[in-house]
């Protein structure tokens, strides 16, 4: 057996090992086929006219077509979460409305929120999220990249 085939077999063993030892563990989900519609989100002052005491809430909205590759976990009972990493410059709150395949919800940066709970019956989960963003305009001083990710927790048998 040459080195290439040995390497491929090793990857196969590694994946099988992941599936076999998944109890109470969290795995990232491949959502590389998700697509954000539109470019940079133009944040607007919630109240363009500030109140007599400082008011600086910024709001924005975007739409994302979510495509989660869950083929590796078909037939398993699982919870899927959307996660937004902590934002060092400005705390962010995201609220999204789904079309029903996944759950609507909200997260603050540094947290995660449930988007699916149940048995996985298909190789992929797809939905469209309309996401509303809130940020503190006193702290959001430059363009910022928000990296939303998904992770899966498998129910212990």
């Amino acid at each position: 057996m040459n080195m290439l085939w040995r390497s491929i077999l090793c990857v196969g063993f590694a994946l099988a090992g992941c599936a076999a030892t998944a109890h109470a563990q969290t795995f990232p989900i491949d959502d590389s086929r998700s697509q954000v519609l539109g470019g940079t989100v133009a944040m607007q002052w919630q109240d363009f006219f500030p109140k007599r005491h400082s008011s600086s809430l910024l709001i924005g909205q975007f739409t994302v077509a979510v495509h989660l590759d869950v083929a590796a976990w078909q037939g398993r009972y699982a919870r899927i979460y959307q996660r937004l990493p902590a934002q060092p410059n400005s705390p962010i709150t995201a609220r999204w409305q789904s079309q029903g395949r996944l759950l609507s919800g909200q997260i603050r940066s540094g947290e995660r929120s449930l988007v699916y709970q149940g048995t996985i019956h298909s190789a992929s989960l797809q939905d469209t999220f309309v996401v509303h963003i809130e940020a503190d305009g006193d702290r959001l001083t430059r363009e910022q990249a928000l990296e939303f990710s998904f992770e899966i927790e498998l129910e212990s048998p």
Binding site: S7, A14, F27, V41, A42, L140, E143, F150
Partner: peptide, 21 residues
């Protein structure tokens, strides 16, 4: 090979850029 596989999975995310006010 195993290491490179894990790094690749960790990097998955959809990214949204938000502007300032």
């Amino acid at each position: 090979l195993l290491c490179s596989l894990l790094v690749s999975l960790d990097a998955i995310a959809y990214v949204v850029n938000i502007g300032t006010g």
